[in-house]
């Protein structure tokens, strides 16, 4: 049933910004930095979502996902590869039994401006092709028009079609305008059955920010206190450097803590982040920053 949205916590932007500044001022050094970088790498959903994606391109990023940088020992693979439904079969084939998940966007991504019927078919197609994770978008138009029941029912319907596949619900916070709206949408998604809530499609600016991620983590925290159920979080878009990724991890560490500090409950939707993390890891090992030409660009 749709949750009560009238009594939700509200957010003060200035206060949230201040808290974020505190996370960002943490100084992450030596071993804790390496630990953080490895963890961040293991949480990446390596993403390609372009009209021009081809079988070849998808195969290349799948190989990158399995072999981020073979000269570095003891580094994890990424968590998942994220593609459009039409590329799911390619990705499944390329990743074989590597343990890396195949995530597919669905439901008329990125705008979500289609009928429920089409969205369900879109989801079903992706699941049938072998996607283990579905990244759906909510209907922002309906949300902003106040049709919360519509948004809720849609998520419930998509969740049903997902079956065993994990459902990540994209709020597209860049279109929701206020932090209070972000909280409201998080609440709808969580109660409708989301396994993860996700900030953005990456197609709208601003994409993920620490502010909206903070509010979503707070929603996850309150839900856990109330029900004991853990929901995952995925900021996506704009997280391109190790420094930013570590700041997100500091926030995760200090807001939700140890249970969430793994790829089952936290993901980064990113692509260029991977090479930046690798560059930092190589720097830690060799003491020098290598040219970006030493890191494969797939």
């Amino acid at each position: 049933m749709i949750p009560n949205l009238d009594n939700l916590p509200v957010y003060d932007t200035a206060g949230v910004n201040e808290r974020i500044a505190r996370f960002c001022s943490r100084s992450i050094k030596s071993n804790s930095k390496l630990e953080g970088l490895r963890l961040a790498l293991s949480m990446v959903d390596l993403t390609t979502l372009e009209g021009k994606d081809t079988t070849g391109k998808v195969q290349q990023i799948c190989y990158k996902a399995m072999h981020p940088h073979d000269t570095l020992k003891n580094i994890p693979t990424v968590a998942a590869v994220c593609v459009y439904p039409a590329q799911v079969a390619n990705a499944v084939k390329a990743l074989k039994d590597s343990g890396i998940q195949v995530a597919s966007v669905a439901t008329a991504f990125p705008s979500g401006q289609s009928s429920l019927e089409v969205k369900l078919l879109d989801t079903k197609f992706a699941v049938d092709q072998g996607a283990n994770e579905i990244d759906m978008v909510i209907s922002r138009g309906q949300f902003l028009a106040g049709n919360y029941q519509y948004v809720f029912d849609e998520i419930v319907a998509v969740k049903k079609v997902c079956g065993q596949a994990h459902l990540k619900v994209i709020l597209e916070t860049g279109e929701l305008d206020t932090l209070d709206n972000v909280r409201k949408a998080s609440e709808l998604a969580i109660y409708a059955g989301a396994d993860f809530i996700k900030t953005s499609t990456g197609k709208i600016q601003p994409a993920a920010t620490m502010q909206v991620t903070y509010v979503m983590l707070d929603a996850i925290k309150d839900y856990y206190i109330k029900t004991g159920k853990m929901i995952g979080m995925k900021p996506a878009g704009g997280i391109s450097t190790s420094k930013i990724a570590l700041q997100y991890l500091v926030m995760l560490n200090e807001v939700l803590g140890e249970k969430w500090m793994n790829k089952n409950y936290f993901r980064f939707g990113a692509s260029s982040l991977v090479n930046d993390i690798l560059m930092q890891l190589v720097k830690a090992e060799t003491g020098i920053y290598q040219s970006s030409n030493y890191f494969s660009k797939d």
Binding site: R26, S27, I28, K29, S30, N31, S32, K33, E35, G36, L39, K221, Y224, I225, L249, V250, N253, E254, V255, L256, G257, E258, K259, M261
Partner: peptide
Amino acid sequence: MFKASWAYD
């Protein structure tokens, strides 16, 4: 309940 696990050096 939300214990931080990542200890900063």
